[in-house]
Design a protein around this nucleic acid. Structure first.
Lengths: 242, 242
DNA sequence: GTTGTAATGTGGTCATTACCAGTTATAATT
DNA sequence: AATTATAACTGGTAATGACCACATTACAAC
């Protein structure tokens, strides 16, 4: 079942197998999964590897351990990782809402000073700004403005973005930029007339402002994004882990 | 330097030593920490232990690894874990604001149906409700309503709460309930007249509603809490990790 | 029946050894 | 001088073996 000659690590293959059993309901929430010694013989790998696989699943929130008792399947909750959190599309799909977007602009320009500082860039540096209107079931939900720090040769075209619909997929597949961490803030603001007309609400209506600074796998800031959500149509979800 | 006869695990002691060096600035951000082989000889522990310690620091966000290059000190960011996130007091102190609270009520009662469901309780079960006004530098910032699932013998008195100021400290020290996970939602609402008067704002002013379901170390829900923050005086901070 | 205790099973820690997989500096080659 | 190979790093994966700490069960003693 475990392929030792694969480039994919054993613990990773094993974690996928176990995750599958949890997702398919073979092991319901709160039930113990086989003990580490059992899995050791069952899959013919060392306990080191077993523990590494379970470590991985625990970090993802699929299982939890109790010293002296066993390892148990976590009750399904929000179940969100970075991938889903940072992706508007996946977030919406998860909630059963059809995502969409209208790309308003995509161009290189000199961003506000604040953005340069957040992206750890020197003054007078141009960055890529993408302005989008986010849709849920066809109706406007949010206004998103992204500022991206990209190398010269890393070019994003309007068509790419329209085709995939996901900025993060492009970053990952084309530029090997893997989002690994993000700092976020959320606060309340009131809609300006222009924002209001784009979101099809009244000026002065309450909005949820979500700011995010995204880091790549080397902990370098790559994107600073502001999203203005309609207060009446959006709810922010998150899971905190110790 | 590492005490082998201590009950405290070696990897944990080692992690503390390394974290200390980072906090004190001995190892500035982006600089490599000693390699795993170097630490191995330096502290006379096995590489297993070294890696376990670094795993721990990495999970806490103090360092990051780059395959083939080394392990590096993370640039300081929000630096928040569960502890700080779930504790209003610590959150405020971190921002340089003097926290405070006015306990409005603390009593056992039948909560709304929604709360019973969230706490996985059967109908007609009484829970402890705590209503508090949260203060920042003496001024009202938020209205907090907590519903707690506690055993018969787990009693919280008004005096305890007033003395420590921290509900989570009581849960941890007296009842051995350790918050390990939480699901949160954030959305915008408008202040009702009564809420407005408590928060000293106008009725209809925008508020940030933060709901949280808190789990203990066994992944059982223990607290459901709603916090209504003044939109003009509060900003929610969080850090997402992959 | 109750209590204490030993056995057993669970995850937690740690050392040792080996090799693989990226990165980078250095030496050899051209 | 530029290029290419190599060696010497780095962290990543894996097996093996040992013992510890905690929880539960079985059972003997009372």
């Amino acid at each position: 079942m475990i392929n030792p000659y694969d480039i994919i690590p054993k613990y990773y293959q094993l974690a996928n197998i176990l995750r599958q059993k949890i997702r398919e309901g073979e092991w319901p929430p709160r039930t113990p999964i086989p003990s580490e010694r059992q899995l050791e013989t069952q899959y013919s790998v060392s306990r080191t590897t077993i523990r590494q696989a379970i470590d991985y699943l625990e970090k993802q929130g699929f299982v939890y351990r109790e010293h002296g008792r066993g390892t148990f399947v976590s009750p399904q909750k929000l179940q969100k990782g970075m991938q889903e959190l940072t992706s508007f599309s996946e977030d919406m799909l998860r909630r059963g809402i059809q995502p969409g977007q209208v790309i308003q602009s995509i161009e290189y320009l000199l961003p506000p000073e604040e953005v340069l500082q957040r992206l750890e860039l020197s003054p007078n540096t141009k960055v890529l700004r993408i302005e989008r209107i986010r849709l849920g079931d066809g109706n406007p939900i949010g206004l998103q403005t992204s500022y991206l720090k990209l190398a010269e040769e890393q070019v994003i075209h309007r068509e790419d973005l329209e085709a995939t619909g996901s900025l993060y997929r492009i970053l990952q597949d084309k530029f090997n930029i893997i989002p690994t961490e993000a700092d976020e803030t959320l606060e309340v603001t009131l809609a300006t007339p222009s924002e209001a007309s784009l979101l099809q609400i009244k000026a002065g209506a309450p909005l949820l402002l979500n700011e995010r600074l995204l880091y790549n796998q080397n902990r370098e800031p790559v994107e600073f994004v502001k999203i203005l959500y309609r207060g009446d149509r959006y709810r922010y979800l998150t899971r905190l882990t110790k």
